[in-house]
Amino acid sequence: MNDSMIIGQYVPGQSLVHRMDPRMKMTIIFFFVIVVFFANSFGSYGLLTLFAFVSVAITRIPLSFILKGLKPVWFLILFTFLLHVFFTRQGDVLFEIFSFPVYEEAIEQGVKISLRFFLLILLTSLLTLTTTPISITDAIESMFHPLKKVKFPVHELALMMSISLRFIPTLMQETEKISKAQASRGVDFRSGPIKERVKAIVPLLVPLFVSAFKRAEDLAMAMEARGYQGGEGRTKLRELTLTKEDIAALVLFVVVMVGVFILRT
């Protein structure tokens, strides 16, 4: 398991953010992403940063865990920063690095852009950290529901997503099993020239496909036996309900948004 990467991982918890309706979380994040692009002053950035960190604090997921988990992204953020530092040529020259002039404006731009980038990633990963994939699927199904009128297969899509989520761990186990069986027959997945290694994938992929098809066939039969006949007339166990907490969160967020626009210069 790769524990240095947290994007897409769910951390179980009972916090307010965990409990929130996934639709509300997604709506807030959607608008947050837009608002971030409107921020241009340190005041407006500061407010957004504050909002983000307060949200993190509420989840009770240690900030250090999240920051460590975003390691691969740090590189990108740093890269963005440096790009701005070296290619913006406005304002006064602050200092020189190896006779390369660094402008005041450049530092400011660099900080703002990388902060914008960081906030986007922080908040979107907060969504996946506090929401199970299946809840996200539910939210998508619910939010896309109006599209049913234009014959968009919302229910089918959501079902497909939830079944995929259900089978990911099963197929991972299967992959491991087959790769071990083939390794025992002398396949070397780890070393050798690239061409050989690509060839080594075939004995892994073919059985995996065969088994996935068999599973799909079995599953379809089991679903049919249990009375599945499409989305028509189905009731749902999973129900999304907006609570007072969700509304409170939304109000708070709207206040922050207004604040950002006021603090803009």
Binding site: T132, P133, I134, S162, I163, L165, R166, T170, K214, R215, D218, L219, A222, M223, R226
Partner: peptide
Amino acid sequence: NPDNQFVGTT
């Protein structure tokens, strides 16, 4: 097959 008839995520 216990795996191939389990439809739900929980």
